[in-house]
Amino acid sequence: MTGICTGRVAVVTGAGRGLGRAHALAFAAEGAKVVVNDLGVGLDGSGGAAGPAQQVVDEIRALGGEAVAHGGDIAATDGAASLVATALETFGRLDTLVNNAGFLRDRMLVNLDEDDWDAVMRVHLKGHFLPLKHAAAHWRAEAKAGRTPEARVVNTSSGAGLLGSVGQGNYSAAKAGIVGLTLVAAAEMGRYGIQVNAIAPAARTRMTEQTFADTMATPEGGGFDAMAPENVSPLVVWLGSGASAGVTGRVFEAEGGRITVMEGWRPGPTADKGARRTPAEAGETARKLLADAEPPQPVYGAH
């Protein structure tokens, strides 16, 4: 390991299992002190236990690293504030925030209950906003005090947020919202030494068992496991380190050994009449433009 995070303090939410656990261990392996946040809830957000977060902390300590567990609800103001406070009180600083926590409540739209919509929006979207808000407030204060930080935020979107995913209207909307939040945060916070990026990972976790059912099996004979969550973490660690200087407001897909820079909405074919159109004229123009436009990528799960 290169130790590219030596001296840094990283907070990882939802770090008790899956991608979050892999990120926490990878940051520790590169020299960071880690705050491991996890509520220990089930796949649908129910229940809760302190065990998963503490287990990851114990793993990091057994390998010679430094870590502390945080069991607060990061989608609540008090929990998000205490997350930042835990880093500052335990390690004296905060350098990197990785927003990763989430769960699923999948339904087709006509079967999707309001509670399932609200719960997924809360943990994914609000659970990104509140830690980001409290971390950024600390970093802004540091910058105004003449101690401009080398701060990094890595948000977790999804291919479902970029392309849509059948049966995941709530999750797709939340993950698309995270991309918008990332772009705004990067634009607003750069003056304070804060870089904000997002990843859209694909890996084997509790949340993806059904989505990637055909590709989830671990390869026999010790071959490269393209779906291992540990494959995503190197990019997250680099984005969370000082080595990523100058990279902000970007979205990356990460799966196996592949990294892709995602290019979002850009103007395509356009036509300006210089005057108001009738509905029929608007429709005729729209069809001509669509004929010249690139077709959209298919929604996940669409037939």
Rank of each mutant, 00 (worst) to 15 (best):
T2H: 12
T2G: 09
G3E: 09
V9W: 00
V11P: 04
T13W: 00
G18W: 00
A22Y: 00
H23G: 03
A24G: 05
L25E: 10
A29Q: 09
A32C: 07
K33A: 08
K33M: 13
V35Q: 00
G40C: 07
A49G: 10
A50P: 08
A50Y: 05
A53M: 01
A53N: 01
E59P: 08
I60H: 06
A62T: 09
G64W: 12
G65D: 06
E66I: 10
A67R: 06
A67H: 04
H70K: 11
H70D: 13
H70G: 07
I74L: 08
I74G: 03
A75H: 12
T77H: 09
A81V: 15
A85Q: 12
A87C: 02
F91Q: 00
F91N: 01
R93K: 09
R93H: 07
T96F: 01
T96Y: 02
V98I: 10
V98P: 04
G102E: 00
D106V: 07
R107K: 10
M108Y: 14
V110T: 11
D113I: 07
D115M: 12
D115T: 15
W117Q: 08
A119C: 06
A119Y: 00
M121I: 13
R122I: 02
H124I: 11
L125I: 13
L125H: 03
G127P: 04
K133F: 14
K133I: 06
A143P: 09
A145T: 10
A145Y: 04
A145L: 12
T148V: 11
N155P: 03
G159R: 05
A160H: 05
L163H: 07
G164H: 09
S165M: 14
V166Q: 05
S172D: 09
S172G: 15
A173P: 08
A174Y: 07
G177D: 00
V179R: 01
G180A: 02
G180C: 02
T182S: 10
V184L: 12
V184E: 09
A187E: 12
E188L: 01
M189H: 15
G193H: 00
I194R: 05
Q195I: 02
N197V: 04
N197R: 02
A198F: 01
A198E: 01
A200K: 00
T208E: 04
Q210C: 13
F212H: 11
A213L: 06
D214S: 13
T215D: 12
M216Q: 13
A217Q: 14
E220Y: 05
E220V: 14
G222T: 09
A226F: 15
A226C: 08
M227I: 10
E230M: 08
E230N: 05
V232G: 13
S233D: 12
V236A: 05
V237W: 02
V237T: 10
S241A: 03
G242R: 12
A245H: 04
V251C: 09
F252A: 03
E253T: 11
E255D: 13
T260D: 15
G264C: 11
R266K: 06
P267A: 04
G268H: 08
A271M: 13
K273N: 11
G274R: 13
A275S: 12
R276V: 09
G283L: 14
E284W: 11
T285I: 15
K288I: 12
L290E: 13
D292F: 09
A293S: 13
E294M: 08
P298I: 10
G301P: 02
